[in-house]
Design a binder for these strands. Structure first.
Lengths: 344, 344
DNA sequence: CTGAAAGCGCTTACAG
DNA sequence: CTGAAAGCGCTTACAG
């Protein structure tokens, strides 16, 4: 048996350059450059001639060289935590696409950086190597150290998420308001005993969600029952405990901070033989593919993560250009009522 | 209320260059360059002097400029389908990390490209713009068009996945063998009626898994029952139909092609009041976080996706250097027996 | 409106 | 062992 082996014999597929064009057309490189960039005076005639030639030869400028001359890289870094969990993944996937597409449209490219734990050495390397003009930090990466480092380096950066640090440019889904409105709707339906099951308050996003929950009660002038709130459910056991306690409290509805938790809650309810929505209403604060095929369908909040990514990218780019941008930006949401909260 | 506004006043935080070093040390740029790269003759003394100065001033070479001079970019592209589904996400996340870390170690960086559907224009742009030296295609992106394009462009690329095209450099988890071994183990326990529930055969990875299943029967000299194989389950309904039919056939065990499907299968079984493992054994061909918290724990195949990413990256890099590399590379796996296949 | 020249920050024959 | 010079592919004052 022959072992198939590959070797790369790079046959100098030489690319055409600005000099080639200049020579072919008997003009200077300067002129060619001007025709391409549109900057500086140039006669309509020569401009057309050059552009036509470029079109014909399918010439593409070398962005790297352009960048070097302009002291830019036309790259931004996207920092993603290597240790994020499953719930976050649809979020990352969708926002990533938004970021890439937006960047592309502005002739920028996205460099991927993963961090592991507190170690952001790969980001350091990338910045020290002068490979990016700006950085997008993604949520749950609100570790101050990275932000501090970035400030020190004086490199423009933005957080796709929420931070208390007002110095940090940020854009996020409006979790607080969304959660508030969802709970308000549930209260309006007459449910007063609404349990909340969520993950660690160490994540800013969870804190926002909790705030929304609280505000709903506050706005409606109902008192929120502390005993109905469980915000440390990461494992199956913890969730099971929380749900059982809520059942003892005879809550009418359980609101889950995200889809992962919601899936766990649904498992517990199934085990306990509690029917949704007949005996218990359930809603989630985040709508992802995770619950897509669930039966019954789950009422939840829908965010447009792709648009979030695109906006984040655009704001960073604007900022890098020296434009004025708002420090704190929030994106809308949609409340999707489904079977799990139906009145029977 | 004041609207917080940001503006980027880039205060020329000028970086130190090779010329600065040369001037400070009264040597030529050439010499500095040699001290850094280690190429070319240079006296131990001057080398040390330069390196010490570099250390002291914390100088980092501009990789972009270096690349321009060497006709390289020190970047590789990672192509990720914008429309991949949930099952694939742990895979992407983990392999991404492996790729980034490996690249980093070789002073390369990873540019992120998303495709949407058949549209790979962002990849085109990146390549035309001369921004990468090589490309990693990720599985489910086996669309021939992209590979054809890449071949045309004569740019080195590798597929993290499996393709029938023998011209394509590829590395993948050994799904076929893993699945075969898992099923063989089940057969050895005496289960003869083993159902298979899986996704579309349009995905190469699913085809590999099916092959493994077939081989297990073949090796054991049992005949495989066509009626026990359902390979078009994407939705809840399809899965439900498949499971019900398998129940009618009185299979003893259900093997699922991936975790998403397995989760659906478990839901159906729960609904039908079938207890696992008492009344039915269940196993999955892919072990991801999706099933992490499931009760009972599910027997499955464990792959090291991070290592897969790292290997893929390394092979591509080797290939780009002109080294000989194997055309087809397979990674090992581990079979994790859990409660869901326990004998009672 | 156009071009020669210097420059971005590095590398690399070539000569000494 | 070391350096002057040309070059990577572009941009951009400056001069005309």
């Amino acid at each position: 048996m022959v072992m198939e082996v590959f070797r790369n014999d790079r046959m100098e597929n030489r690319k055409i350059t600005i000099s080639d064009i200049a020579e072919a057309l008997q003009v200077s490189k300067t002129t060619v450059s001007r025709a391409i960039s549109g900057k500086g005076r140039i006669s309509e005639e020569t401009r057309k001639k050059i552009l036509a030639y470029i079109e014909e030869k399918d010439y593409k400028p070398n962005v790297i060289a352009k960048g070097l001359a302009q002291q830019k890289t036309y790259n931004i870094a996207l920092v993603i935590p290597g240790d994020c969990n499953l719930v976050d993944m649809p979020f990352f996937q969708n926002s990533m696409q938004g970021i890439c597409e937006e960047a592309s449209q502005h002739d920028y490219d996205v460099m991927l950086v993963t961090t592991s734990g507190k170690d952001y050495s790969n980001l350091e390397r990338m910045i020290f190597n002068h490979k990016v003009d700006g950085v997008i930090l993604s949520r749950s990466l609100v570790k101050d150290e990275v932000a501090v480092f970035l400030k020190e380096q004086q490199i423009p950066f933005i957080l796709m998420g929420t931070s208390k640090d007002e110095d940090i440019l940020q854009v996020d889904n409006n979790h607080k308001e969304g959660c508030c409105e969802l709970v308000t709707k549930l209260l309006a339906r007459g449910y007063r005993k609404i349990g909340l099951v969520g993950g660690s308050q160490n994540f800013v996003v969870n804190r926002m969600r909790f705030e929304g929950y609280k505000n709903a009660f506050h706005n409606a002038k109902y008192t929120m029952e502390e005993a109905f709130v469980y915000s440390n459910c990461e494992t199956m056991e913890q969730t099971e405990q929380a749900v059982k306690k809520l059942l003892r409290h005879e809550v009418q509805c359980i609101v889950c901070m995200d889809d992962m938790i919601c899936a766990l809650v649904m498992q517990v309810l199934a085990k306990e033989q509690i029917k949704v929505p007949e005996q218990m209403k359930v809603a989630s604060f985040y709508d992802s593919t995770l619950l897509m095929n669930h039966e019954p369908a789950i009422t939840s909040l829908l965010f447009d993560d792709k648009a979030l990514g695109a906006l984040t990218c655009r704001i960073l780019l604007d900022y890098m250009q020296g434009e004025e941008v708002k420090g704190k930006n929030l994106m809308g949401y949609e409340i999707v009522l489904r079977e799990s909260t139906d009145d029977i």
